[in-house]
Structure formats: C-alpha cells, structure tokens
Amino acid sequence: MLVRLIYASRASGIDGEKLSAIMKASRTHNAAAGITGVLVFSDGIFMQVLEGGRDEVSALYNRIAQSRSHRDVVLLDYEEISERRFAGWSMGQANLSRLNPGVLLKYSERAVLDPYKLGGQAAVALFEELVQTAVIACPGQ
C-alpha cells in the first residue's frame, strides 16, 4: 500500500553543509527503501512530502520526529494513495529563491513559507506547483 505523508519542522543546528549531508544520505536511504519525495527548507523551516510503502514512510517519519536536527515536528497530511505524484525524486530539494512569491501567496496568508499555517490539501498543491514550475532540484540523482 502506498501512502503520502507531509510534515513540517523547525531546524536545529542546520547549516548549508549539514543540509547537503542530510540530502545526500536521504537520497541513498530513500532510493533503497522505495521512498520518493521533495524537501523544502527556508528560513530554518523544513517542509517535506514523502511517498512510498506505509511501513517505510512511517519508519522514516518516526526517525525524523526523534532526530535532534528537527523540533516542533507537525504532521500536515497523511493519506493512502493509488499512485505517486513525486515519483521522480528519491529526494528533490526546492529552491525557493527561484520561486515567484505569488505562488506561496496562492496557498498561504503571506508570501513566505509557513507550513504551520497550511492545510494538507494546500501543502500537496504547493508541492505540485513547485514541481510544475521547475523549482525542484536534485543534484547527483
């Protein structure tokens, strides 16, 4: 059974170098576990969509929730799915500096990323728009 999970968290002690290391490890682990997804990181906030088998996605989310790199972890959306929407990435990363601020404003109260104020459907729609506008990068994949 496939599921999609979207969560938000605040970063603890994450700089550019550590984020790159996390992304590299995630791509390796996720590909082996059959997990695909996209990560957005902006102003110390993570928002991530994960898709894959229920057991694998749940285990990864539990590791993230217990990680010292994350705090204030909040589940935004979880659903069974018939097909993946983000199958092209073992872990894509959104570059919000390339994004028209109007896209964020379309789904939230202000033109800044604040996933704590997004509903699940808005979070999925935002990720889909990030993919459609080619804001997602996946170096080394």
Rank of each mutant, 00 (worst) to 15 (best):
A87T: 13
S58W: 07
S69Q: 07
A59K: 05
I64M: 04
H70E: 08
I81C: 03
D43F: 15
I64N: 11
I64D: 05
I45F: 10
G52V: 14
G52P: 07
S42Y: 13
L76P: 06
G44T: 05
S69F: 10
F86D: 02
R84H: 09
F86P: 11
E79V: 03
S82W: 10
R84C: 14
L76F: 04
A65I: 04
F41A: 00
E80H: 12
Q48G: 09
V49T: 06
Q66F: 01
A65M: 05
E83D: 15
A59Y: 01
D43R: 08
R54Y: 15
Y78P: 01
A59F: 00
V74P: 01
R68K: 06
D72P: 05
R71H: 09
S82I: 15
F41E: 00
A87S: 12
R68G: 05
E56D: 12
V57P: 02
R68S: 11
A87P: 02
S69K: 10
M47N: 00
D55N: 15
E56C: 09
S82N: 12
R71F: 04
Q66A: 07
Y61N: 01
Y61W: 15
G53L: 14
S58V: 08
V74F: 06
V49C: 03
V74M: 07
Y61K: 01
R68F: 11
E79Q: 11
V49E: 01
R84T: 13
F86Y: 13
Q66N: 14
E51H: 09
D43N: 00
A59G: 08
S82H: 05
N62K: 04
V73K: 10
V73P: 12
S67G: 13
D77Y: 14
I64K: 03
V74G: 13
S69G: 05
H70Y: 01
V49W: 08
F46W: 08
Q66H: 10
A59Q: 09
F86M: 13
S82D: 14
R71S: 03
W89L: 15
E79S: 06
Y78Q: 02
E56Y: 03
Q48Y: 04
S42D: 14
D55P: 01
A87W: 12
H70V: 06
A65D: 12
S67C: 08
L60W: 03
D72T: 15
E83G: 09
G44M: 05
Y78V: 03
W89I: 07
G44Q: 08
S42Q: 06
N62E: 10
A87V: 00
E83S: 12
V73C: 05
F41M: 00
Q66P: 08
S67M: 09
A65P: 10
G52R: 10
L76G: 05
G53H: 12
G88I: 00
Q48R: 11
A59V: 02
D77N: 13
E56K: 14
A87K: 13
R54E: 13
E51F: 02
